[in-house]
Design a protein around this nucleic acid. Structure first.
Length: 773
DNA sequence: TGGATAGATTTTTTT
DNA sequence: AATCTATCCA
């Protein structure tokens, strides 16, 4: 239908023939693939988003009705971007584009009855989940003090990701930990049910099970969307796989896009086999490889390729580019974590002052959030504007969570976790003892806490003042109830007044509380923006929006800031200049991935995933890539010697694409961190000893060789000098830069590629000018 | 009941 | 190092 309408839009916005403009042959084939399963293996920087959005536009152009197309991404950011780009190609097309989780929520709302939920169910974040889990553990008679609440949460999460129900899990229990989980998991589900709430995992788990169980529903939904696209397919878990599978049986026009080398979410259940086995699962799959990289320089790709080749569980895939080689990838070795942060800051200042790049062109990637701290300090000191892009929940400040809990309780009075959060916020003299009694009463009577509070007068042994406090609270919340259908902005304003929350902050005299008020104002603004985007939006919609959004989604490149983020958050982004810091054993790869027992293969699944993570980081870089590690790092208050990441050693073969800058004072024996190549080969599964490599660390003049002190002033090194280096042999000085102790010398070695050293610290034998090089 | 303080404990990554 | 928890006192 309405083909003419679309064609008109094409003419005004972008003519239809432009749909295939600027596409290479494989990209065109992917865009114009007709019916049947399609697997697009898209390497980094291969124009994946372009292909997927053009494909949506192409389908529309073919006369497919927009409501027949379903596009699913992993992050809201990706969904927004896709929506935006599809909109530009075909305005007002109204294609259903959403994340897996918001798609799940939608299904659950629409079919809440079949899913045995009330329509107004709430979505619990990690924080809520943990609190509910503690209650469930109490139910199961397991002490919550045992500090492993988190591990039980992870175990349950894992179950749901794999579509393992409590019943199935109980059958297969073996060890002690499993027995504990078997006790807690069912109780936890009951708690969720009673609270009329879902956790994140439920948003996939429940729909997936529902589709399996309810064949009519499955058929109905399969018929609803004739064309499905799934982005980042390598990161799907079993639940997501099942959903995609069940929606594409009658109409197997499923197009999945992904790159097995960029699968980095194993820890949350994603299974690389989903993409590896796609061809097997969907007969007659057309496979298209998008190999050419349009993003990075040749050197960056050479380094990334050298790294990823070390993975054994992969389909070999060359990284090709027509881009120029660009600058060598730089590896910098620092002494401490702080000097590393300062070094990065220094390099950034140098780059920006030299007008080469702007702050916004630069990103620093870290493996863990804790590593951002020294960077913050160094950047603040150097007056570098920066932004830490976090993947955590957006409204994480206490006051915002409190306000949201009020809203949640208004929408869903059975939300016990929300109740517990705010019943005494501001203080209403309702303390722990009271709440314990209230909880007991609620349990006996089978009521939610809100309802129990309403009947507080029936609870034996409660002091009259406390009874009044509880009943007043219930009455106050009842009074707010009429707000749920209105604008979230009004709702927040009113609840702040009526609950006394605002007054308590205003009158506290605490300086922090003033800030809190401002933060709440910020949230009201967010609600306002939400309403402007979705004029029909309710409190309900706002809550959902908040629950499924993350800080990462708010990421924009508008402000001229350096971006600091985790490697996971970096996926899907690109920057002209990228720094990857702390490439050390135990950090990248994370200690969690390291073999904990005696000697294990170095190619364990975990290590391979960490390697992919490093690969993802490197391939975000367009023009310049800086890797770094340091000799010692302080963590949790103690300083320890570090070992360079095995991924650094993986790059030995990429010498010609790299340069190494060593900024350590090399006091050889004492206090110097051992490096993998100094040690027996524990980390590789080779049984033969590896040849000892020369340390890529120049021998210090002073410490290493007392016979030659700087005072003896060896012949001057200058650009063009031919030199001999104790480890790397013959080389030619190609550049001398910097001043004073920071004077650097860059050398093109005959065999070891380009390396740079601090002039102060390197020992170089300057050869006669005429020496043959 | 709630605040202060000392003591314990810790975290990989995220929808 | 920083945050969370348990305990004690007002």
């Amino acid at each position: 239908m309405d083909d003419s309408l679309f064609n008109e839009s094409f003419l005004t916005e972008s003519p239809p023939q432009s749909l295939l403009d600027n596409l290479n042959a494989s990209q065109t084939a992917a865009v114009t693939h007709g019916k049947g399963p399609l697997l697009i293996l898209a390497g980094p920087g291969s124009g994946k988003t372009r292909v997927i959005t053009r494909r949506v536009a192409w389908l529309l152009q073919q006369g497919i009705h927009p409501s027949r197309i379903l596009a699913i991404t992993f992050t809201n950011k990706a969904a927004q971007e896709m929506r935006h780009r599809v909109e530009a190609l075909t305005p007002h097309s109204q294609v259903h584009i959403s994340t897996f989780h918001s798609f799940g929520v939608r299904l659950l709302r629409e079919f809440s009855q079949r899913a045995n939920l009330e329509r107004n169910f709430g979505v619990y974040d990690m924080d809520d989940r943990e609190k509910l889990l503690k209650l469930a553990m109490e139910d199961a008679g397991i002490a919550t003090s045992s500090s492993n609440v988190g591990s039980f949460g992870n175990a349950i999460s894992k179950c749901k990701n794999q579509l393992v129900t409590p019943e199935i899990f109980c059958e297969g229990v073996r060890d002690y930990f499993g027995q504990m989980v078997a006790k807690i998991y069912p109780k936890y589900q009951v708690r969720l049910k009673n609270a009329n709430a879902c956790d994140f995992d439920d948003l996939l788990y429940i729909p997936a099970l529902l589709l399996q169980k309810d064949k009519t529903l499955r058929e109905e939904l399969d018929n609803r969307w004739h064309y499905t696209l799934v982005d980042e397919y390598q990161d799907t878990n079993k639940a997501q796989y099942a959903i995609a599978r069940d929606l594409n049986i009658n109409h197997p026009n499923l197009c999945v896009v992904g790159d097995p080398d960029q699968s980095i979410y194993r820890f949350r259940g994603s299974d690389i086999r989903n993409i590896m086995d796609f061809e097997r699962d969907y007969p007659n799959t057309k496979v298209i490889k998008l190999g050419e990289n349009y993003r990075s320089t040749g050197n960056i790709l050479a380094v990334a390729d050298t790294l990823i080749r070390k993975n054994s569980e992969r389909k070999p895939k060359p990284l090709i580019t027509n881009n120029h080689h660009g600058k060598p990838v730089t590896l910098t070795i620092y002494e401490t974590g702080d000097s590393e942060a300062l070094g990065v800051a220094g390099k950034i200042v140098e780059t920006v002052v030299g007008k080469k790049w702007n702050y916004r062109d630069i990103a620093v990637f870290v493996r863990t959030n804790a590593l951002t701290r020294p960077l913050e300090g160094a950047f603040t000191g150097s007056k570098i504007p920066f932004k830490i892009v976090k993947g955590l929940a957006y409204f994480e400040r206490k006051e915002n969570k409190d306000v949201l809990a009020y809203l949640r309780l208004m929408v869903n009075p059975r939300d016990d976790i929300g109740f517990l959060r705010i019943v005494n916020e501001p203080t209403r003299k309702i303390g722990k003892t009271t709440l314990d009694q209230l909880g007991l009463f609620a349990k006996e009577q089978g009521l939610c806490l809100m309802e129990a509070a309403r009947r507080a007068n029936l609870i034996a042994g409660l002091r009259p003042a406390v009874v009044k406090a509880l009943m007043d609270f219930a009455r106050m919340m009842d009074g707010l109830n009429s707000l749920v259908d209105g604008s979230p902005v009004d709702a927040v304003r009113t609840l702040l007044e009526k609950s006394g929350y605002k007054r308590s902050l205003e009158t506290s005299g605490n300086a922090e509380d003033k800030q809190r008020l401002e933060n709440i104002e910020e949230m009201i603004t967010a609600a306002d923006i939400f309403i402007k985007n979705q004029p029909t939006g309710s409190v309900h919609g706002f809550l959902e929006n908040v629950a499924l959004s993350s800080n990462l989604d708010g990421y924009d490149n508008d402000s001229n800031c350096v971006s600091i983020m985790t490697l996971h958050a970096a996926k899907g982004l690109e920057f002209p200049v990228v720094f990857m810091i702390a490439m050390e054993e135990g950090i990248l790869p994370s200690s969690f991935a390291l073999p904990s027992g005696p000697v294990e293969t170095s190619n364990s699944k975990e290590i391979e995933e960490e390697r992919r993570l490093a690969f993802v980081g490197m391939t975000r870089a367009m023009n310049e890539l800086y890797l770094g590690y340091c000799d010692e790092r302080s963590f949790r208050g103690i300083t320890r010697a570090t070992m360079p990441s095995r991924f650094i050693r993986d790059l030995d073969d990429a010498n010609e694409a790299m340069e190494v800058i060593d900024l350590t004072r090399n006091n050889m024996g004492f206090g110097h961190a051992p490096e993998p190549w100094d040690l027996p080969d524990l980390i590789s599964n080779k049984t033969t000893p590896i040849p000892i490599k020369p340390k890529p660390v120049p021998v210090s003049l002073t410490a290493a060789d007392p016979t030659r002190s700087p005072n003896k002033s060896p012949p001057k090194v200058r650009e063009g000098s031919i030199i001999n280096h104790s480890s790397y042999g013959l080389g030619k000085v190609i550049e001398i830069s910097g001043t004073g102790v920071l004077m650097k010398v860059r050398i093109q070695f005959k065999t070891a590629g380009i390396r740079a050293f601090l002039l102060e610290k390197v020992t170089l034998e300057v050869l006669a000018p005429g020496t043959r090089f």
